[in-house]
Design a protein around this nucleic acid. Structure first.
Lengths: 209, 209
DNA sequence: TTTTGTCTACCACGATCGTGGTACTGGCCA
DNA sequence: TGGCCAGTACCACGATCGTGGTAGACAAAA
């Protein structure tokens, strides 16, 4: 066992301090080594091609693009890429999308370092690893209906404080259609009015501030 | 100059990985040393008393209490405590409160490590240090009117999707009074309706999800 | 091909909200 | 003591929203 080559880890996050922490942690382990770091999505894709790491730690929110898009981009070229998504927030929508897009693990940044190391090892060994906290959250919203792209667009407009007529103008549809969308949004999210719909949308990570 | 004792730094954050990063960074500097770490507010207050650090890095959001309350608690006993607030978000309300409560510095977690080291040194030297990004943000909202406690309470209820009548019942006031509060909230925040008021309140950190 | 889902659109009615007044109370500060 | 502010309360009117229908176009899936 001692002759095995170490797990080659690649970390992508726009927080330098956090990258520093991951670097220190990973390199302190005898069976793994950090081979590269990136801060943006573009950098992540580029460096992945060059380095072909064993395991990639990918922040969900990057300055230039969504971590999920990076995930998709990488896996379209390297279907076997073993990628673990890291996030600060507990947006369940994102968990879903990330796992569907082929993420092998999903971790919150406030989890203990030992957990991170464990997940890296398991994912490297070909397993999927979702911590119970995330898994239960996932189950909780399994039956939730998913908003369509158009509905999310409308919800964003609502969050910006636009009235139905304004939203209609901005999206080039009739005010009545806007109402229909909002009705569906509220039904799906279980909101009693547009304001609560925005709150829930923000909490679930469906829209951002 | 080389005979000076190093700056004794104390770091409080509930993200172990981030603490790891700060530890690695600080300890890599010849003129500073990390003497302790904490993950909660209670721990922070306790460890501060025991260690009396030169500079404290304090996360704004801690699991058990607000970083600002920790700041106040520490400074009530140690008025000379040099504390730098760290945060992920750009909530301007919090900046204000933190500085009024006596924070010597205020940093976003996604800033480059060199910036952090610079601020630690400056704060240790007795200066205040607010990075330009934060300072401009501060100026931007200098003239903003501040919501009263009651108004914030009402805004929270609004964010939860309660109607005026419900809010009235929950806060034991009349529906008309609720309307007055919401009117004032919208005026102060420059919102066109309650939904935008919630968005702005969330963005500014006046309320949380 | 049929079905399903999404987006679009219209209408009408009641509920709720936002606006612009006025006004009394109690606390704080000059 | 007088002024200011926060909080409370009321009213009336127009604007906006939410609900409950129905329905056509189009694309994707079954």
């Amino acid at each position: 066992m001692s002759g095995k080559s170490p797990i080659r880890v690649f970390s992508v996050d726009d927080h330098p301090l956090l990258r520093e922490g991951i670097a220190a942690l990973v390199n302190s382990q005898p069976d793994m080594v950090l081979i590269a770091q990136g801060a943006t999505g573009a950098e992540a894709i580029q460096l992945f091609k060059e380095q072909l790491p064993d395991v990639t730690l990918l922040d969900l929110r990057l300055p230039d693009m969504s971590g999920i898009d990076v995930l998709i981009a990488i896996r379209s070229q390297f279907p076997d890429a073993r990628i673990i998504m890291l996030t600060t927030f507990e947006g369940d929508v994102e968990v879903h999308r990330a796992l569907q897009a082929g993420a092998r693990g999903y971790l919150l940044k406030n989890m203990p370092p030992t957990e991170l190391l464990e997940v890296i090892r398991q994912v490297h060994a070909g397993k999927k690893r979702i911590p119970p906290e995330i898994a239960s959250q996932l189950l909780e919203h399994m039956s939730d209906e998913v908003l369509t792209e158009r509905e999310i667009e409308v919800l964003r407009e609502v969050a910006d404080g636009n009235r139905n007529r304004e939203i209609a103008e901005r999206l080039f549809i009739s005010e009545e259609t806007v109402k229909v969308h909002i009705k569906h949004i509220m039904e799906k999210l279980g909101a009693s009015d547009r304001t609560q719909a925005v709150s829930i949308g923000l909490r679930r990570g469906i829209i951002q501030l």
